[in-house]
Design a protein around this nucleic acid. Sequence first.
DNA 1: CCATTAACGACTA
DNA 2: TAGTCGTTAATGG
Length: 233
Amino acid sequence: MELITYLARMDLFDGLTQDELLQLNHVTPLEIRSKGSMVVSPYMSPKVLYIVKSGKVRLYKLTEEGKELTLDILGAGHLFGELSSFHTSADMFAVTMEDSIICEIDVQQFRKIVSEKPMLALKYIELVTARLKEVEELLGYMAYGSVRQRLLFLLHKLAIKFTSNSQMMHEWVTLEIELTHQELASMTGSIRETVTPIINQLVSEGILRKEGIRKPYSIHLNRLQTALSVVSL
DNA sequence: CCATTAACGACTA
DNA sequence: TAGTCGTTAATGG
């Protein structure tokens, strides 16, 4: 029962009937990972496709100097893997940021599923192209602009990604994810000493809000967007 | 404007 | 206790 509700929540599998979801259970093993555990590293056996059922997964690479460069954070319903190749190249790491449930599918299983349900291939293509678009947009923003702009853009992205759309109408939306300055810096190609003053400035500008230590950020979307659109592109 | 380096108190495994 | 995190400050590009 639990499994079915989980599967139905996944982007890749919505639109399928209950019976079809039941069949998928046989080829979609569930992996429960505790916080901070490595899901993918360059030295692991390639599993082709991973689907995040719950929790958060951080994807990152190592620079030549050995620093972690976070490329993306995935939440429930998102997928990544070797076959998709829109995520996870050979030198990619994936680590859980909280206790997570992850579905692993290898080549044979994926081929089998897709051959039985061609609709999945279409859905899959949609996800890949959406991902591609996102990366292109991200690239454009990260290439130019100050760390402040990159942070604003990142926060906007995260707000879209990790906010329940029920509260998207409100002035303040809550980022349902734990973020350290370290991670924000790693995602904007910066360092935490630079991020700290900027975050504090955004708080004083009324764009960001932090309920307390170890608590999630809230974002004033309108103010963030105006602050973002002030910048010429 | 921003990275680097250093350093310090608080917190956590 | 050792490592991480947020923060400040000096310096140099």
